[in-house]
Design a protein around this nucleic acid. Structure first.
Ligand SMILES: [Mn+2]
Ligand SMILES: [Mn+2]
Ligand SMILES: [Zn+2]
Ligand SMILES: [Zn+2]
Lengths: 154, 154
DNA sequence: GCGTAATTGAAAATCATTTTCATTTAGAAA
DNA sequence: TTTCTAAATGAAAATGATTTTCAATTACGC
């Protein structure tokens, strides 16, 4: 079943409608190879559906995240970009240089969470894990350049 | 050595000054039992040092985070609160109800990171991990009441 | 097709953060 | 001490992101 059809079903269950705006926004985030900010999503989706408004993009991102079709991405600098959800319970590995986001699902925090629950008395029910670094593409040129670059401060 | 003295030394090394504003902001974040937003920090610090300006709070939070005295906290809903740093490389366990933040240091992500590096070709150099739930104090009254809302998944 | 609740987009409002700039201050040097 | 100056400050304005409002439009169950 196509993603759009699944979405249609999910929406119907909540008395909500499948609109052109929603389809456009979902398509942009889903097809992106990187996490995108609301403004970026607006710009791209507007090409496919020029009537679209920014307000609707914000509302749609909230909705799609609630339904689990996309995920909010937090980074050390800069919050609230969005990336597609491949599976439930995914985390992101984000390239700090180009923004490319890779999803992974084997976060394996169970034993850490279990021991922290015991130690602190907290009940832990949500976790946020994000890894940042440089993707293979962005590493290559940097490695080549590194040799030539004279010493200096950042 | 007191924290304020350590800070004085750190600042001096960078040709920076220990000001009343900086002392006030650091004291508020350090003594807090919960993570605080810039606006909250401003309100509280202004009581101790009424001349303080909000602009300075923002600048000071950046500075103290850079120096490692405090840490930015991201949460699923709401970003950019600040909590004190107990040790370097700490993570936070935050109570979703009252905001109380517990720091922990044994995140133990090395093997996950190592295997992801191999699998994806990314070079991973930063990670963000935050756990959310309910602290012992906030659990007690909730447990007494009948729970109607199922907990969400991470 | 009709009726209606849900959705939309433009504009305005709100809220968080940053920039600007004239003034003040910390602290090193005299 | 007093002097000197780079660093820091705070008020106000500017910027940017997000939310609210509201009249008009649209999806879709009937
Ligand atoms: Mn996980
Ligand atoms: Mn964040
Ligand atoms: Zn990259
Ligand atoms: Zn609590």
């Amino acid at each position: 079943m196509t993603q759009s059809l699944t979405l249609h079903k999910d929406l119907r269950q909540n008395h909500r409608k499948l609109t052109r705006a929603r389809q456009a926004v979902l398509a942009i985030v889903t097809d992106a190879q990187r996490h995108l900010t609301p403004a970026e999503i607006y710009r791209k989706a507007k090409i496919k559906y020029p009537h679209l408004g920014l307000t609707t993009v914000y509302r749609t991102l909230d909705l799609l995240a609630e339904l689990g079709y996309i995920q909010r991405v937090h980074a050390v600098e800069g919050c609230h970009s969005y990336a597609p959800t491949a599976q439930t319970h995914g985390h992101h590995l984000v390239c700090a240089t180009c923004g490319r986001a890779e999803e992974f699902t084997d976060c394996d925090l169970e034993s850490l969470i279990q021991s922290l629950q015991v130690r602190t008395g907290f009940e832990i029910n949500v976790h946020m894990l994000e890894l940042m670094g440089r993707c293979p593409d962005c590493r290559a040129p940097a490695r080549a350049r590194k040799r030539k670059t004279p010493r200096g401060k950042a």
